[in-house]
């Protein structure tokens, strides 16, 4: 496990493809289904474009593509999760929103070396939520500039 964090952890969970992922709820600013964006030619392929979020320019990222799970399709259930990462707002396109899961950092297990082909470095770890495993995303690693 990368982090030595402890204490309670609330995660907002969502599906990227068939994988259930979670983000620490504290970095999430909002979720919306505004899908109107301007593409930016020449940008990295996982960047979908930019969006006007109440007067601010927000970069939208295809989380599926970024994690190597394949391109996300925009459907009725698609949502954009706006997160704060390093003083910047970034939108993540996900396939479907799931529940909020409450757990503790102590219950987070290290990331298995290969979870469904996702690059391991993007995760804090995994934990159990009911029957399913939730992969906890390290948002700064995902949105870091490689």
């Amino acid at each position: 496990m990368k982090t030595q964090q402890s204490g309670p952890l609330q995660m907002s969970c969502f599906y990227v493809g068939s994988a259930l992922c979670g983000i620490d709820i504290r970095v999430i600013q909002e979720m919306n289904k505004q899908m109107e964006m301007t593409r930016v030619p020449g940008a990295p392929s996982y960047v979908l474009g930019i969006m006007n979020l109440r007067g601010r320019i927000v970069t939208i990222i295809d989380l599926g593509k970024k994690l190597g799970l394949g391109e996300s399709k925009k459907t009725e259930q698609s949502r954009i999760i706006i997160v704060n990462s390093r003083e910047e707002n970034i939108g993540l396109l996900v396939d479907r929103i799931a529940d909020v899961v409450t757990t503790r950092w102590e219950d987070v297990d290290p990331t298995p070396s290969n979870i469904k082909g996702i690059k391991g470095k993007y995760f804090h770890g995994v934990c159990k939520a009911g029957k399913e495993l939730v992969a906890i995303l390290d948002i700064d690693a995902v949105l870091g500039d490689e």
Binding site: T38, V40, P41, G42, A43, P44, V47, I50, I57, V58, T59, I61, R86, E88, I90, L143, D145
Partner: peptide, 15 residues
């Protein structure tokens, strides 16, 4: 300004 993911893009001065 554009976000940090666009710093490799040469053609833009902003949005």
């Amino acid at each position: 300004p554009l976000g940090r993911h666009f710093k490799e893009c040469q053609g833009y001065a902003g949005a």
